[in-house]
Design a protein around this nucleic acid. Structure first.
Lengths: 304, 304
DNA sequence: CGCCTCGTGAAAGTAAGTTTCATCCGTGGC
DNA sequence: GCCACGGATGAAACTTACTTTCACGAGGCG
């Protein structure tokens, strides 16, 4: 058991634990006891103090330090940290977030949460991936230059429309949202060249929204559609089509995923528009933020 | 403002960093400096000694310790270890989408989209990770058993409130949302034991919502708060606290990320409630879906 | 204006980590 | 058989890191 100049690996890429168990035989008996403890439960070891670990290995602190040096660490604290990191990393895989699909009938809430979040996040990511920046750019330009922006959406998409309207309004763009079809139609009839009509419909089949867009288009306004289905009817009345990528899961959470995707798109457009005129947008935002300040209670503070 | 056996989160399984940035505003200035250092580079912080970190944050060791306690750790060593673990876990995506932070002034639309989507998706994921299923379960139970559910939210959170109301309504639960404070107060005054009051406020400081929840609570209703900040004032008037985990990016997209996070939580609750009574919920959903059918135009080829 | 509370860092105190050193034990030479 | 010798080990001294205590000062409230 001749021990060579102990400092073997100055760098142990494959993983600290592997590294340690690799040079386990080259360690002195007392150090081996320490090593075995460490290898068998890195996370637990990371939580222990040096005295603790020494006691558990039936040895002294000095030996633990020697062990640290033997495996290439500066000292115990460093080992601890590396162990913690290592442990965290290796818990990851067994986690197995298969969640992709549907929610099983017997699911408990934790599963439900995981599934929904996974789907929601995916919808957002995938939407971003398939969004065409060129089209966005044109839409941003149209909105930036518009004298007026009408935003349409029914039901769930109505929330998004309303959100968009509010966002644009806050940076000083003249935007409207109409919860009611008749009002919307009336408004669309008043649009003209240079205005923008923005219709949101997840399915792309909401007749109300389509009608209104159509009306707007005949009046010369630039029409934009935001839908999940690139070949749905609404795309036929739109100059620009933006799509979300919420895969149809079940009737249940699908709705929310698509909503999130829509909001993300809307946010991108919003930021794009705001970025076109930073100072003005910032100013407007500050002013509006101040406006609600008096409705906030101060002390966001409380300690145990 | 009596505070009672609140059930919120001393529970940060999902992400320590997220947890810390959540209670950032509830920290004292000096502690905030420490928090920011930690959040901005957990791995680096884990390597530092307490004195080091204190110096870097331009404060004393004592403050660092106080910070540790504030975020629920026993002391500095524990924080270090947790941080190391956390950092290790989040290096995971070697994908290197640096995007995490802010949007640079010169960014083109593609960058903007990537950044926003990334932040949005993260907000959703992290929210789900730190959500306490036990608390959700209790909230779901309260909602399921409630004679009536009042949902409050102002401004941006109002959309979420409204969305939630609509969702619950669609599965046959009696839920209300009030865009107007006075109406909300009136309604809250009519609540009683067995009812649920659900308040949404990103900052947790919206006085309107707080007031209404308080009113509801004195009437004996179960109060639930949904906020990004676990120690904000709204949590003091809530029996159950649910938190989102949108880290405050800039004023711009932060708003949407938090919206998405809220929607995700709401969706989880909704599915939880629906799951309690599958058949009835499904039936209700089908009926309501049919109801809007006539407003859809045919030919939409769903995806393959 | 005085009282109180709260945030703060200096300093004292304690615990953790590190080094030193004496001891032990086995080995091999004389 | 005795005596170096060297490596392994733990006790204790030592250093550094961490934690607690306390007093000061700023800001809020009566």
């Amino acid at each position: 058991m001749a021990k060579s100049p102990k400092i073997s690996a100055s760098h142990e890429p494959g993983g600290l634990i592997v590294h340690i168990s690799g040079l386990l035989p080259s360690l002195s008996p007392a150090e081996q006891r320490v090593a075995r403890l460490v290898v068998s439960d890195p996370a637990a070891a990371a939580r222990r103090t040096i005295t603790d670990l020494a006691t558990a290995a039936e040895t002294s602190e000095a030996t633990v330090i020697r062990f640290c040096r033997s495996v290439g660490m500066d000292g115990y604290p460093q080992l601890r940290i590396r162990l913690a990191a290592e442990a965290a990393r290796r818990i990851e895989p067994p986690d197995a977030r298969v969640v992709g699909g549907d929610i099983p009938p017997g699911a408990d809430l934790a599963q439900i949460i995981a599934t929904i979040a996974f789907n929601d996040a995916r919808a957002v990511e995938e939407t971003a991936e398939q969004l065409d920046p060129a089209v966005c750019e044109q839409v941003v330009e149209a909105i930036s230059g518009a004298a007026r922006i009408d935003i349409y959406g029914a039901g769930a998409s109505g929330f998004v429309a309303s959100d968009f309207q509010q966002k644009l309004h806050r940076i000083g763009r003249i935007a409207f949202y109409f919860p009611d079809v008749h009002t919307a139609l009336t408004s669309a009839a008043l649009l003209g060249r240079g205005d923008v009509a923005f219709g949101i419909s997840h399915t792309g089949t909401t007749s109300d929204v389509i009608e209104v867009l159509e009306q707007a288009r005949t009046r010369g306004a630039v029409t934009v559609a935001l839908t999940n289905f690139p070949r749905s009817p609404i795309t036929e009345v739109a100059d620009f089509v933006l799509t979300t990528a919420a895969r149809e899961t079940t009737y249940r959470s699908g709705a929310t995923a698509s909503r999130l995707a829509q909001l993300t798109v809307v946010d991108c457009l919003f930021v794009g528009v705001a970025a076109r005129n930073r100072s003005r947008a910032r100013k407007a935002l500050e002013v509006t933020a101040e406006a609600v300040q008096s409705h906030r209670v101060g002390a966001n503070r409380r300690r145990a």
